[in-house]
Design a protein around this nucleic acid. Structure first.
Lengths: 248, 248
DNA sequence: GCGATGCTTCGGCCGAGGCCGAAATGTCGA
DNA sequence: TCGACATTTCGGCCTCGGCCGAAGCATCGC
């Protein structure tokens, strides 16, 4: 099995706590220096350097030199999707020991996921635009309606025009913390950009968490009609969404 | 980073050659006994047993007892998608040493991918139904047109009815060997089932490869209008499809 | 029951690989 | 050119985990 060994090689790179922490941090979507990554991984600079070299060589990371710093970022969207799939499986793994600190709750509330948003905020936004008939999410896949196209255009998003005679499609991504679908693909990325540009959300340095500004709270409520209690964590057993959690 | 460690735990399970080979084999979509898996992994029964126990405990595999055999299968579609994402990244990793035997070429021609088909055949079928306007693939996502719905219904596929007022959506999956999109999701699964039922393709025991019967060759040509040369491996640089290989 | 077969548990061996200290290389600012 | 800082290379230590032989359970056919 030719691919078996290559698969194992790549996977074993993800299978080390230090490297996994680096990659998780880079899922935030911003490039980081070797030193910063050493810190998030909790190892010395020289150890981190070795890890980073391996990941670059295997095509997981891209390196960019800038002065005496080296910036690292995920090499491609495919790597980001791999990490996403991995986090989803990991999050659903048998409970074991879950520290689940306050830091973790911030991540569950709103975080960046490579080029789009994830967490309760992202799920609430997806629900809201679905409820208003702007978007249909189904089977990990989204379809923008005609009204939805107008709505997002009015919001300032520019989307690549779809194949003639159809509505634009977008990817939907199963949120590992919420087990619910949220917007991804080009629509998700454009939405994230616009929210950043408006100052509704901001990246928190050295973290994947997002801070939601006062303007953001108002804006999400006014423009998207987010319910008052969108930020309340779902109670166990409560079913706020429409999609089943998982395909067969 | 709470999820970092869990992520590393899961990934390190995939990061061993023996386990990766077992999981690759199970991507074929059929359950296998512990003994068979030991064989594909190239280890003794007792070693395999240990590996399998770990993977069941972590939620990667499901075990089913049947007489004195234990059958193992992937625990969920999410695990299958994780493996798929991993194979895609692995396949695009820097060349290194590629044995690339005849066995590998059979895989590239037609194989099962958990619940649907992959390889050149699957890509050619996707291309064909797209060319005839039955389906639109875009950004990892597919949309069935009205004619497409009729076409697949006439072919014998029963699809879950879509949300009212829309066409059915389906997932598209980036083929690791062809770097092109192929049909996945419920449509891909239903299509695979139907092809198996008609005897157009058959699973090759202990392999993910699929055998295409004479009836299949005729059927694919007649019903789907597959070109004569669909099975010719793409020449380097040649671009037969319409989708770019990868999003940003 | 009894042996054959499939699978698992136990114990010990051993190699791969992560870790750090020390030192080398590169780059910036003065 | 020099010192400070970011990063990498080298070398040696040490733990973790995969591997197998032997033995222990379970199940089937007789």
């Amino acid at each position: 099995m030719v691919s078996g060994n290559t698969v194992a090689e790549i996977a074993s790179l993800l299978g080390d706590a230090a490297r996994a922490n680096m990659l998780s941090a880079l899922m935030g979507g911003v490039a980081m220096t070797a030193g910063e990554l050493a810190q998030v991984a909790g190892v010395t600079a020289q150890t981190a350097s070795g890890h980073l070299a391996k990941m670059v060589e295997s095509g997981l990371l891209a390196r960019e030199k800038q002065g005496r710093h080296r910036y690292y970022r995920l090499a491609s969207g495919e790597v980001a999707q791999l990490l996403d799939a991995l986090m989803l499986v990991a999050a659903n793994a048998p409970a074991r020991h879950r520290p689940l600190g306050p830091r973790d709750d911030a991540l569950r509330r709103a975080r960046s996921c490579y080029d789009h948003m994830a967490g309760r905020l992202a799920v609430a936004l997806s629900d809201a635009v679905q409820a208003r008939g702007f978007l249909i999410l189904e089977e990990g896949v989204g379809l923008l309606t005609e009204e939805g196209e107008r709505f997002f255009a009015a919001f300032g998003l520019t989307l690549r025009p779809p194949r003639s005679g159809t509505r634009p499609l977008c990817r939907a991504c199963l949120d590992w913390s919420e087990r619910r679908m949220h917007l991804a693909g080009q629509l998700g990325a454009a939405l994230f950009d616009q929210c950043l540009a408006r100052g509704w959300v901001a990246r928190i340095p050295d973290s994947r968490s997002l801070r939601i500004s006062r303007a953001g709270e108002l804006g999400f409520a006014r423009h998207f009609g987010l319910a008052e209690d969108w930020d309340r964590p779902a109670r166990p057993g409560e079913w706020r969404g429409m999609q089943p959690a998982s395909p067969a």
